[in-house]
Design a protein around this nucleic acid. Sequence first.
DNA 1: GACATTTATGACCAAGCGGTCATAAACGCT
DNA 2: AGCGTTTATGACCGCTTGGTCATAAATGTC
Lengths: 208, 208
Amino acid sequence: MPKIVNKAEMRDLIMDAALRVFVDKGYHAASVNDVAKDAGLAKGTLYLYFESKEALTTAIVDREFAAIVQGQLRTKPRESLAAFLEDLRQVMDLSAEQAAFYRVFFEVFGPSFASTDFTQQIAGYFDKLGRHYARQIAHLQELGEIAAHHDPRPLGRLLVSMLDGVVLHQGLFGGSKRRKRSMMREAVVLLRAGLQNPPQEADGAGMG
Amino acid sequence: MPKIVNKAEMRDLIMDAALRVFVDKGYHAASVNDVAKDAGLAKGTLYLYFESKEALTTAIVDREFAAIVQGQLRTKPRESLAAFLEDLRQVMDLSAEQAAFYRVFFEVFGPSFASTDFTQQIAGYFDKLGRHYARQIAHLQELGEIAAHHDPRPLGRLLVSMLDGVVLHQGLFGGSKRRKRSMMREAVVLLRAGLQNPPQEADGAGMG
DNA sequence: GACATTTATGACCAAGCGGTCATAAACGCT
DNA sequence: AGCGTTTATGACCGCTTGGTCATAAATGTC
């Protein structure tokens, strides 16, 4: 009988290699050959497990992305604002590898690559996370921990965008640990005050 | 005597075409030929005005980026929190074209492309904007419009990251006008409360 | 050890790219 | 009109890429 390999394991191994190479050289500069070599395989072998470079990439993005988002989704609804803020702090405190992945992710996410399906899928992840935050916010509003005037849905989605921005800038531009820490501290302080306080009718706020 | 063309004008014309094509097809999928055709030129002509595709791209990013950032920098220091918030709201309210540019920008901004110089330059723009906000914040603190416990520098840079995230998500994932409006409203409300309120010593906020 | 079947290989291919350059067109001036 | 100079052109080149495929290696069973 024939030789047998664990295909799922092999796919994971290849995805690991690909992610390393993409992070190192950039997605578009990395050739399939580069990836295969890093995985210790010949190019042809790689094509036994992924039908194209795009398929490989999609699989990676899906895997990594799901991991990040699921990590947040798994958290049980918190019972205090402080605990919720701690969750948010954790999203911002991605590991260096995850931040690097983020860079790749955005390089990949151009019109050239993104089929509508792909875009939808990613948008779906962010929206899901946003809705999760929305539920969390609504819950904390009931507990009186978050001011009642906030609208949970847009606020949840807004938080996702904002935190993503913070993470992305960290991934792209780095900066010292010190700076990162002080920024994260400010973020938590800002969000805490922003979430828990009702709007004070200020002076002459015009607005359109 | 010779034929004469306005080189600066020509460069701008080419950059306009390139941006259109990049936005439409994605940076990596767009060939120099595509750009030249869109500009109504032959490829060789384009190379009379830009020495390489990378040079063209750098010029575009520089131009567009400077426009966005300079727009904010030109604002005189505001004398009220409300006015400052209105400035922030404006950054988030980019036109569709500017948002599309953002997408291209991040596609370009991979390790494959980015020379260290380029990265530094872009980081410089963001930092500059962050310092601008920091000055603004410090000023409003003196006026008592922003709570004193905030640290202007990291907070300014944080705002840049956050707003960038919001803009980016808008550019990438779009969504209805309604949704955009409600998110922006939430953003302003959140930031106003976050900025103007002092930290309330909450319950049991642990933290590392 | 022979066999059937799966898995691995890397030379090979067509296609497309960025970039060049000999040649032609356009133009301003006299 | 004629000339000197700048500007425009697109066939062409070298190179790399994603992807294929005939061939070889590996493996489990008898």
